[in-house]
């Protein structure tokens, strides 16, 4: 790792005052000006620094800021948790387990027990993609300000199958899949104060901006993550498939949140993870479910609809089938949860 300074931010305000770049910005401007970036759990940032992809001049540690590690649930306000809540914290929360099953499942299957104890939810939403070309200092790809996408012409078995024109990196967070399925929002705090951004707008696709994955600005940090309340009609399920069941990155993950009136589906949200540069809602498939009793046959129709429009690359055509079959399964699981 390069040498850097280190500051423990005592408050959000000071963190914002001191920081001058997001991590993606720091990567792009690496050589031109000293970057002051924030870190929380550090598990992704240290990885990037160790690879020499980011060379910040100063790390501003958020992890000791009081109050950012709280998690609360309320029937009216829903679930709120601070960016310093760890993945393990989310996984072990009874409120989450009870009310947001898909989120609990996604937390329980993320990374390793050790990393879940360290990695924060703020960091999880801000982490950079795992594409092996992006992570290699030898490949100056588009995401690093270069002109070539090595994945499109190279080894892309784990890459995206939707919107793959600019950069087929997939979003690395499988928690984000579940959070978007629950229609989550993120609170960003910057010099001008706070703003609430729905997750559907928080993530930037590679078409929108190939060098950064979120709308967070140079001096903004996540200060809160909010999910609307659930009710007795809410059903949810999540499934992740990697090549291994132990520690592995997702090849495909799917989260489904349904509102059920008896056997009839009133509302549905279906989200794909590891399918595109952002967690991807499948609205056409959702529409198929709405207003109908959910049968295996309907679930399969919705699943088939959900993978429509996929544009797989040379080595990842199998993921289309995988998403289709997993989607059917997750819908049926959500219904069965009862």
């Amino acid at each position: 790792m390069n040498r850097f300074e280190y500051v423990q931010a005592p408050s959000v305000k000071e963190a914002i005052d001191m920081m001058n770049s997001t991590v993606p910005e720091a990567l792009i401007k690496k050589a031109t000006s000293p970057a002051y970036v924030v870190k929380a759990g550090g598990t992704d940032l240290l990885d990037l620094i160790k690879e020499g992809l980011v060379e910040p001049a100063r790390l501003i540690d958020l992890s000791k800021i009081p109050g950012l590690d709280k998690l609360t649930y309320d029937n009216k306000a829903g679930l709120q948790f601070g960016p310093l809540v760890t993945i393990a914290g989310l996984e072990n929360s009874e409120e989450v387990k009870k009310n947001y099953r898909a989120l609990h499942e996604s937390a329980a299957h993320a990374a390793t027990p050790q990393l879940r104890n360290m990695a924060t939810m703020g960091g999880n939403l801000m982490q950079r993609p795992r594409c092996w070309y992006f992570r290699s200092s030898e490949h100056k790809c588009r995401k690093k300000g270069g002109f070539t996408c090595y994945a499109q012409i190279g080894q892309n078995q784990y890459h995206g199958i939707f919107n793959t024109n600019v950069c087929p990196c997939v979003h690395p967070s499988s928690l984000a899949t579940a959070l978007l399925a629950f229609d989550g929002q993120v609170e960003l705090t910057g010099p001008q104060g706070r703003r609430i951004v729905p997750l559907s707008e928080f993530f930037l696709s590679s078409e929108e901006n190939v060098t950064q994955e979120t709308v967070a600005e140079s001096k903004e940090i996540i200060t809160n993550i909010i999910l609307p309340p659930v009710d007795a009609s809410t059903r949810s399920a999540f499934v992740k498939m990697g090549q291994r069941e132990s520690y592995d990155w997702s090849i495909a993950d799917v989260a489904v949140v349904l509102k059920m009136d008896g056997k009839r589906c009133r509302d549905a949200r279906i989200v794909f993870g590891a399918a595109s540069s952002v967690p991807l809602r499948r609205e056409d498939a959702e529409a198929l479910l709405k207003g109908k009793p959910v049968t295996e046959k309907l679930a399969m129709e919705a699943a088939t609809k959900a993978v429509e429009g996929a544009t797989p690359l040379k080595h990842n055509g199998y993921k289309v089938k995988l998403f289709e079959n997993l989607t059917k399964r997750v819908i049926m699981q959500a219904v069965a949860v009862g």
Partner: peptide, 12 residues
């Protein structure tokens, strides 16, 4: 306090 969560916004 912001929403249900609170954190320190002020400077030490």
């Amino acid at each position: 306090s912001t929403g249900l969560l609170s954190f320190k916004l002020e400077s030490p």
